[in-house]
Design a protein around this nucleic acid. Sequence first.
DNA 1: TACGGTTATACTATTTGAAATATCACGGCT
DNA 2: AGCCGTGATATTTCAAATAGTATAACCGTA
Lengths: 115, 115
Amino acid sequence: MAKLRVKITVRLFTDEKCFGPGVAELLHRVDECHSLRAAAISMEMAYSKAWTIIHNMEQRLGFPVLEVKIGGKNGGGATVTPEARQILEAYERYCRRINEYAEGVFQEEFAFLES
Amino acid sequence: MAKLRVKITVRLFTDEKCFGPGVAELLHRVDECHSLRAAAISMEMAYSKAWTIIHNMEQRLGFPVLEVKIGGKNGGGATVTPEARQILEAYERYCRRINEYAEGVFQEEFAFLES
DNA sequence: TACGGTTATACTATTTGAAATATCACGGCT
DNA sequence: AGCCGTGATATTTCAAATAGTATAACCGTA
């Protein structure tokens, strides 16, 4: 049969989902762009969607994820708060470790497919 | 902040997605009910949806997942083929191992949340 | 032969979610 | 004062996933 691959998705929940691959990617890019709008555009996402994602996340986490400046030099901008960055980094380390482990276990459990 | 939990989703792909939590659950119940219809009803899923899921899966995997009998005693029925059962069991073992590992690592990486 | 319970499949409706659009507020810069 | 680029929201449109309905084929059993 066709070769099988595996994909693992990690999501964090409080009551509702509040952190997943999309949010992580978005925050990562805000960190680079210093702007939510630029971050959204760079991943071909509508600004309104990016804003909603961040908004929901803040509601569910209960603390601000972005520190925001409206108007002024360059029109304003956004940066990731230290608390959010801490979670982001933990999430990324966590995913990396899970995926490394999962790779090896996959070889074991699905070895029979090779025969 | 609110207590964080983690959920990990495992999906298998050939070219497209062909195996995930939904399919696993469904096959599991077919195994118990010896009927696709009964399995679907038992998880409050429309038969047509269950059938579509199985159908797609068979297309993508390239071999039959259910052995089917139409008409006759009890009207017919369905059983999981040995090949499919092998994948199902491997998938379930795999998920169990990933989740056990993930639990421990989560404590490590997100320990700072307790402070 | 009619019935009952199953699989098979198409078609329609509904719900959900994403995407796009439209305003507005803000505050340096020119 | 007016422009520009940003963030903040609500509204509307569109697409896709999901759910539900309908109908036919099949074949033991009564």
